[in-house]
Design a binder for these strands. Structure first.
Lengths: 141, 141
DNA sequence: ATTAATGCAAAATCTTTGCACTTTC
DNA sequence: GAAAGTGCAAAGATTTTGCATTAAT
């Protein structure tokens, strides 16, 4: 009884986010939330779905990623102006961005220190602080 | 003889970057580098050029911004996946991003402290560390 | 004259939309 | 069966490209 039950995990997650558990959403949630945290583009997730024999259109993948993000199940990371990344890790954290392979990896919040933030102009409210460490693999490629 | 000579400033800047000082590049350099540091999109710079009666196409503005960036005269800031921003400030620094007005403002390097950076995976070389403080004006708009 | 830059329109991305069809509740 | 979600193709938006023309050295 202590076995992981991924299907119902995804189901519960959708239910508590107020999203109808349709076949497409369940399949995408399974790809996204079963296992480790991940960083995906719409294109990547769509091709994974197709590979897994899930019939879903790219437009629906876009919609779904935005719905998951709005529902607080994921967040969007902006590192490359030509494509959007979505992260299943919604805890406070930061990123390495590998410019060659165009991949992301997490930096936990306690692995980095940002201090001395100046006051925001006009007392604007801080939505989020993103630290992006851009790196380049200087070996291959 | 201590007067500012913006035209030749732009000229010298282009010359030392190895870029031919064409009419379009000179005009754009003038818009960009005369005065305070600025953050521009291609669209914005193009419309400023048109307003200033400079005949230049949007494609050339894109090309020019990229050439200036490659030459180290500017740098690109990624904060919004739907548009590219270019910054005339090439010193180490960070940014506030106003999500409502879609505008940027600089945070000088010494106004913020990033410490305890973890080692890069595989010893990859750090290209740049970007801190983006996303803010929302909670008054108007 | 040679070489580089420009303009234009067309193509290439990536992302969103409109609407008929399908699925969930 | 009412309401919400999906697919598809088409439209949008931003950025890039190809090539003939123009300008800089």
């Amino acid at each position: 009884m202590d076995k992981i039950r991924p299907y119902s995990m995804a189901l519960d997650r959708l239910r508590s986010a107020g999203l109808r558990p349709t076949r497409q959403r369940l399949a995408l949630a399974k790809l996204l939330f079963d296992g480790e945290n991940r960083h995906v583009t719409a294109e990547l997730l769509h091709s994974e779905a197709v590979d897994a024999n899930v019939r879903v259109s790219l437009a629906t993948v876009y919609n779904t990623l935005h719905q998951f993000t709005e529902a607080g199940l994921m967040r969007e990371i902006v590192v490359d102006s030509s494509r959007s990344y979505f992260d299943t890790n919604i805890d406070d954290h930061h990123h390495f961005y590998f410019e060659d392979s165009k991949r992301l990896s997490d930096i936990a919040d306690d692995e980095i220190t940002v201090s001395n933030l100046p006051p925001t102009p006009g007392g604007a409210e801080v939505t989020r602080v993103d630290v992006i460490v851009r790196v380049k693999e200087n070996n291959s490629q």
